[in-house]
């Protein structure tokens, strides 16, 4: 076997892992997919049914009486926490990238950037520990009551503040976890811009900041969008930190920004033990369906971001 073929086969194996994961999860979850139908996505009940009564047979599958699987609250919780995280991470990430790329002498750039990139290196569970031990008491006792009192007129900012576990806490911590993706890709793109763009802007009388804002940032717009979508993908699938700080609400739609939530990723961890008590195995298969939905969403989001970034890379290569 030639070397070319050998490495090619192993490369196919690596890439094929993705296909295998999707196929196997789909196969395993199939009885649950058939049972739950489309209402899985828009109903708001996750209930294993009557654990101590005899199961009934649906579509040739044993199911517990009264079992209902609908994950609307998970979809809402996942999307909202990601949205809050993006709303914080994009402006802060862009600002930090501008400072790191243009506001510092080149000799300091690498180590200052490293400081932000460290945020990506800190493990998810350490964020969870930090959030659980320090951030939740701080937000729940000081910041949230203050926000609710003085900014309660903004929709979803008023009302009960709860204990600190919830949507805004998850969004804040998630934003820190995803911001390095935005800052790092944008900073690299800004630094890689041809010097002539900046020089042309400055020659027309623009200050350094005006050149950055009116010429360099628009030129890197697609990188920013691609990086933000990658960050979205990361926020959608984050597990441990969200598990420890979101409150893990079940069958509950948040009424305001402080309310407890649950995301698809954290729900898989928090519910497997309980799902295993279902003797028909349908709960475990329904959790596999949650994993399948999450996997498909992240494939779409990441695929879109990659295509955008490839396209950008090829275009800038052609210009250069």
């Amino acid at each position: 076997m030639s070397f070319h073929l050998f490495t090619g086969l192993l490369a196919c194996l690596v890439a094929g892992t993705l296909v295998i994961i999707v196929a196997f999860l789909g196969l395993y979850a199939w009885p649950a997919v058939r049972l739950n139908g489309f209402s899985f996505l828009y109903k708001n009940t996750w209930s294993l049914g009557f654990l101590y009564r005899n199961p009934i047979t649906v579509h040739g599958q044993q199911v517990l009486r009264g079992a209902h699987y609908g994950i609307l609250f998970l979809i809402v919780g996942t999307l909202l926490s990601t949205l809050v995280a993006l709303a914080i991470a994009v402006p802060v990430g862009v600002g930090a990238a501008m400072f790191l790329a243009e506001g510092l002498p080149p000799s300091l750039q690498t180590w200052f950037s490293f400081f932000v990139e460290l945020l990506a290196a800190i493990p998810s569970v350490v964020y969870g520990l930090w959030g659980y031990v320090v951030v939740i008491p701080f937000l729940g006792h000081r910041v949230f009551p203050f926000l609710a009192r003085h900014f309660g007129f903004i929709p979803f900012f008023g009302g009960a503040v709860g204990s600190g576990y919830g949507l805004l806490t998850s969004g804040l911590v998630l934003s820190l976890m995803i911001v390095p993706l935005i800052t790092a890709t944008l900073r690299d793109a800004l630094v890689a811009q041809q010097a002539d763009l900046r020089e042309a802007a400055v020659a027309l009388g623009a200050s350094r900041f005006e050149a950055l804002r009116t010429v360099l940032l628009p030129a890197t717009r697609r990188v920013l969008i691609g990086g933000s979508i990658l960050a979205t993908g990361r926020a959608l699938g984050e597990t441990m930190a969200v598990l420890m700080i979101s409150g893990n609400a079940v069958n509950y739609l948040p009424g305001n920004i402080y309310a407890p939530i649950s995301t698809m990723a954290s729900f898989i961890v928090s519910q497997l033990d309980s799902a295993l008590t279902d003797p028909t195995g349908m709960a475990v298969r329904s959790l596999a369906e949650v994993a399948l939905v999450l996997c498909l969403i992240s494939i779409v989001v990441n695929g879109f971001a990659r295509i955008l970034l490839y396209y950008e890379g090829r275009q800038s290569a052609r210009v250069a």
């Binding site: 994961i21 993908g233 990723a265 996997c295």
Partner: peptide, 20 residues
């Protein structure tokens, strides 16, 4: 492309796949 998308698959999905 597939490898880059695999980077983005949430780790819990891989964990659950491994479990099952």
């Amino acid at each position: 492309f597939l490898v880059d998308v695999l980077v983005g698959v949430p780790s819990i999905v891989i964990g659950y796949f491994g479990y099952v």
